[in-house]
Each structure stands twice: as C-alpha cells, then as structure tokens.
C-alpha cells in the first residue's frame, strides 16, 4: 500500500511541473471557449435552446458567412497558385544571397497583415490614392468606381498581400524536399521533364499545396484588422459581425454573436486539424 503510494507519487510528480501552464490555459483558453459554446446554446435564463443558431440562419448572417468563405477561398487559391510559381522561381534563383533576401522579405511581409498594411493599400489605391490619381491624371484611367480598395476586390488584393508570402514560405521547403535523385532517376529511366513533373514532382508537392491552401484559408477566415480598416461596416464578414456584437457598433439580437463565433471556431478548428493531420502524414511518408 505504502509502496504503491510512493510509486504513484513518483509517476505523477512530474506532472506538477505543468500546473502553472495548464492553469493559465484553462483560465484564458479552455473555460472561455466552453462558456462561449454553452452561451450559444442557451437563452438569457440559461435554458438549453437552439434559437441562436436559428437566428444565425437569417440572410444577413448567412451572407456574412458566405462572404467570409468566398473571400478565404479566393485569396487562398490565388495565394497558393501564385505562391507555387513564385516559390519555384525563388527556389531556382542561382544567387543564394538574393534567394535568402527574398525568403526574408516573405517572412517580414506575411507578418505585415493588419491595420498598417490595410492603410498602405489605402495610400496607393484609396479613392485619393497615389496610384489611383497617377492613373487618372497621367493615363486618363479611372479605377473607381469599377475597382475600390474598400470593397470586395480591394480586400482580395490586400489579403493576397499576406497570403502569397506565407505560401512562398510553405512551398520552398517542399521544393527543397524533392530530392535531386528522383528527378535524375526519372530522366535516367527515359522520362521527359514534363513526365517527371506530372508523375513524380506534382504528386509529391500536392500534400504541401493542400495543407498550404488550408492554412491560407484559415488565415483569411480569421482575419479581422485588415477588413475592419478597409471595409468597416461596408462589407459583411463573419469576423466583422462578431466584432460588432462585442463593440455594440451594430445592434445584434443577443446570443447571435456567440453562435456566429462558435460557427467560425468550428470552421477554423477543422482547418487547423486538417492541416495538422496532413503534415503528420507527410512527415511519415516523405522519408
């Protein structure tokens, strides 16, 4: 009995070292999320209800969700596609110094998301932006109202600004992971370069492209500051709607913010989970 107590104490003692960290996570991460989820499925008296989710099915919220998904999908696709080609161009650049500088630039610019970046786009492409006026007065080309940085198209341009370098950073290691031996084996066995890419290169890049796309999707879906600065209340996105329910800038029915938050939490959570699973699989196979 005493021996058992001693043994179990020895086994569990190391876990005590995790207590401060776990307590923090519980207080600032786990409990708030649980409370949020519970709040989304109960009314003001705490009775279980799905009324909040029914309210979320109103056209305003469905549209905001749809807008968010669309914007995320478009910017993630553009980011993935452009990132693939630009990543390859960087990877193949002969000068190592320049290659490293470009990677460093991607590293910095992907972190430029947010208010300052949004404002930089207003500076060049706002209704009185430098490029807008330059086009108008020097070339006689009116960008507005066909294009507007404060609208959907402007948001796409600003989002791709931080999506593209993120994809570049994700895809360059994938190109580096394509061993020289595979390409040379393929050529040695009589394949053309095109056959190498179709049969070996692309299939091996595909998981990285897919996981990159998912990460970019999540990156755009959760973004708030860029959209808030550029579009404000002109455009309906899920994160903007949730934000309004916090600040009270727009009056929402109670509980709707919670339900919207849970919906976006699930969307993002699934993306991060899928990303993680894909990466685990890649790690076990690409040896």
């Amino acid at each position: 009995m005493g021996l058992f107590a001693l043994k179990s104490r020895q086994r569990f003692a190391p876990w005590l070292g995790l207590v401060p960290f776990l307590a923090f996570c519980l207080a600032f991460e786990i409990i708030p999320i649980i409370v949020l989820v519970r709040g989304s499925i109960s009314d003001s008296d705490g009775v279980l209800t799905f009324a909040n989710y029914q309210r979320v099915s109103a056209p305003l919220y469905v549209r905001s969700l749809w807008n968010s998904i669309q914007l995320s999908a478009i910017t993630a696709s553009l980011g993935t596609l452009l990132g693939l080609f630009i990543g390859y161009a960087i990877f193949n650049w002969p000068s190592e110094r320049f290659r490293e500088s470009l990677i460093a630039l991607s590293d910095v610019t992907t972190n430029f998301a947010g208010a300052p970046l949004a404002f930089a786009f207003i500076v060049i492409l706002g209704s009185n932006g430098v490029i807008t006026l330059l086009f108008e007065r020097q070339l006689g080309l009116e960008l507005y109202p066909a294009f507007s940085i404060y609208s959907y198209s402007g948001l796409v341009l600003a989002y791709v600004y931080f999506q593209l370098p993120l994809m570049v950073l994700l895809i360059i290691p994938a190109f580096a992971g394509l061993r020289r031996e595979w390409r040379e084996s393929a050529l040695n066995l009589g394949a053309s370069t095109r056959q190498y890419w179709r049969r070996i290169g692309m299939p091996l890049l595909l998981p990285s492209l897919l996981s990159g796309f998912i990460l970019l999707f999540a990156n755009a879906f959760g973004a708030y500051a860029t959209a808030y600065t550029l579009a404000g209340s002109r455009l309906s996105l899920v994160t903007l709607q949730i934000g309004f329910s916090v600040t009270g800038e727009v009056r929402h029915e109670p509980g709707v913010g919670d339900a919207l938050a849970v919906v976006s939490l699930i969307t993002m959570g699934m993306c991060v989970l899928a990303y993680q699973l894909l990466n685990l699989r890649m790690r076990s196979e690409m040896r």
Partner: peptide, 10 residues
C-alpha cells in the same frame, strides 16, 4: 484555431 475576434468575445 481560434479567430482573434472569437478569443476576445469569449
């Protein structure tokens, strides 16, 4: 996996 708006709200 938690959008910052959701974290703030929670």
């Amino acid at each position: 996996g938690i959008p910052t708006v959701v974290l703030a709200l929670a």
